[in-house]
Simulated scan of single mutants.
Amino acid sequence: MASVTFKGTPVTLAGNEVKVGDPAPDFTVLDENLQEVTLGNFRNQVLLISVVPSLDTGVCDAQTRKFNEE
């Protein structure tokens, strides 16, 4: 059985798995002003990354609630 599913259907993830302790790969995301930022924008800063693909799923919703409580 696949270790990753979406709505019960196995999915294949692209790229290499990031394991605990690995350096974060470079990435590009949008900030609150919809401007692109990369990992390099945060050099020499403490950075906490919380990935939430969709708040309409039980797991993502629970993760976000727990993060906000902590």
Results as ranks from 00 to 15, higher is better:
residue 39 L to D: 05
residue 35 Q to A: 13
residue 48 L to N: 14
residue 21 G to M: 06
residue 60 C to D: 09
residue 17 E to P: 01
residue 1 M to F: 09
residue 39 L to V: 02
residue 39 L to S: 08
residue 49 I to M: 10
residue 52 V to G: 06
residue 20 V to R: 00
residue 16 N to M: 03
residue 54 S to H: 12
residue 70 E to R: 08
residue 51 V to S: 10
residue 31 D to H: 08
residue 50 S to D: 14
residue 3 S to W: 02
residue 44 N to E: 13
residue 68 N to L: 15
residue 52 V to Y: 11
residue 51 V to K: 03
residue 36 E to K: 15
residue 32 E to M: 14
residue 37 V to E: 11
residue 48 L to V: 15
residue 33 N to D: 12
residue 13 L to I: 02
residue 60 C to P: 03
residue 20 V to W: 00
residue 30 L to E: 14
residue 32 E to T: 14
residue 54 S to F: 12
residue 61 D to T: 10
residue 40 G to K: 14
residue 42 F to H: 10
residue 67 F to H: 08
residue 25 P to Y: 03
residue 48 L to W: 15
residue 55 L to I: 15
residue 33 N to W: 11
residue 58 G to D: 14
residue 29 V to L: 10
residue 51 V to Y: 09
residue 37 V to T: 09
residue 39 L to I: 03
residue 67 F to S: 06
residue 25 P to F: 00
residue 55 L to N: 10
residue 52 V to P: 00
residue 49 I to N: 04
residue 35 Q to G: 08
residue 25 P to E: 02
residue 61 D to V: 04
residue 52 V to R: 09
residue 59 V to A: 15
residue 13 L to H: 00
residue 51 V to I: 09
residue 54 S to L: 11
residue 57 T to L: 12
residue 29 V to A: 04
residue 36 E to H: 13
residue 43 R to F: 05
residue 4 V to Y: 05
residue 11 V to M: 01
residue 32 E to P: 01
residue 46 V to Q: 15
residue 45 Q to V: 01
residue 33 N to E: 14
residue 12 T to E: 05
residue 45 Q to F: 11
residue 63 Q to C: 06
residue 67 F to G: 04
